[in-house]
Simulated scan of single mutants.
Amino acid sequence: MKIGCWIFMFMGVMGILCLLIGAFGIPADMSLYGYSTNKPISFMGIFLAIVIGIKGFAAYSLWFEKSNAISIGKFDAILGFVLCVIALVYFPLVHHTISIRLEILFLIPYYKVLNRMEYAWENLEEQ
Rank of each mutant, 00 (worst) to 15 (best):
F106Y: 14
M11Q: 04
N38G: 04
I41A: 01
R116M: 13
Y110Q: 01
A77L: 01
S61V: 01
L19Q: 13
G12S: 04
L114S: 01
Y60D: 03
G56A: 13
L114H: 07
A87I: 05
I104W: 04
M117C: 07
S36N: 15
E126W: 06
Y111I: 03
L48N: 02
F106K: 02
M11I: 14
E118T: 00
I72T: 13
Y119L: 10
K2L: 09
E103D: 15
S61P: 08
Y111P: 02
I41C: 01
P109N: 12
V113M: 05
G12C: 05
S99W: 11
C18D: 07
Y33H: 07
V85H: 01
Y90L: 14
F57V: 03
I100F: 15
K39W: 05
G22R: 11
S99Y: 13
Y35M: 09
I78K: 07
I100S: 06
F106D: 08
H95I: 10
Y60Q: 03
C84V: 07
A58N: 02
N68P: 03
S67E: 14
P92Q: 13
I72N: 04
I104G: 09
K39G: 00
W6A: 12
F64R: 07
I86C: 11
I72S: 06
V94D: 09
L79A: 11
K2V: 11
V82N: 10
